[in-house]
Amino acid sequence: MDFIELDGVEKVFDVRRKVGRLRREKYQVRAVDGISFTVPRGEMVGYIGPNGAGKSTTIKMLTGILTPSGGRLRVAGIDPSRERTRLAQRIGVVFGQRTTLWWDLPLRDSYRLMHRMYRIPDATFRQNLDRCVELLDLAELLDVPVRQLSLGQRMRGDIAAALLHDPEVLYLDEPTIGLDVISKAKVREFLRDLNAERGTTVLLTTHDLTDIEQLCKRVMVIDHGRLMYDGPLAGLHEVGESERTLVVDLERELPPIEIESARTLKVEGPRQWLAFPASVSAAPLVAALAERYPLVDLSVREPDIEAVIAKMYAERSAGPLA
Score class of each variant (00 low, 15 high):
L113Y: 13
L265I: 12
V169E: 05
P320I: 02
E197T: 14
L250Y: 12
P121T: 07
R198G: 01
E197G: 00
G235I: 01
R98N: 03
S299Y: 12
L204K: 07
K60R: 15
R112G: 00
M155K: 09
E260V: 04
H224N: 12
E253N: 13
I35K: 03
D143H: 15
T245L: 14
S299H: 13
I91D: 08
R154Q: 15
V219E: 03
L227C: 10
P284I: 08
Y27T: 05
T201A: 05
C132P: 04
V12N: 08
V280P: 01
R21Y: 02
Q214M: 14
Q28L: 05
V219R: 02
F190M: 05
G77C: 04
D208P: 01
R16Y: 00
G70K: 04
R263D: 04
L227E: 09
R192H: 14
E168D: 14
R21K: 07
K60C: 05
Y313W: 14
P167H: 08
F125Q: 02
D2A: 15
G71Y: 08
G70Q: 01
V9I: 06
L73M: 07
P175L: 11
R30C: 00
G49C: 06
D166G: 02
A282Q: 13
E168A: 10
V267R: 13
T210I: 13
I91K: 06
D180S: 04
E174I: 10
K18Y: 00
L236C: 02
E213M: 04
C216R: 08
R301H: 11
L141R: 11
H237N: 11
D130N: 14
V202E: 07
L203A: 08
D208Y: 13
P68V: 05
T176L: 09
D104R: 11
E315Y: 11
R198D: 13
D249P: 00
T67F: 01
R188H: 12
E291N: 08
K18G: 02
I65R: 04
R86S: 06
R154H: 07
S261V: 06
R24K: 06
M44G: 00
A318H: 15
L62Y: 12
V300Q: 11
E291P: 00
E197L: 14
S36H: 03
Q89T: 12
L149I: 06
V187I: 12
P255K: 09
D223H: 15
M220L: 15
S69Y: 08
S242A: 15
G96A: 01
V286S: 07
P121C: 08
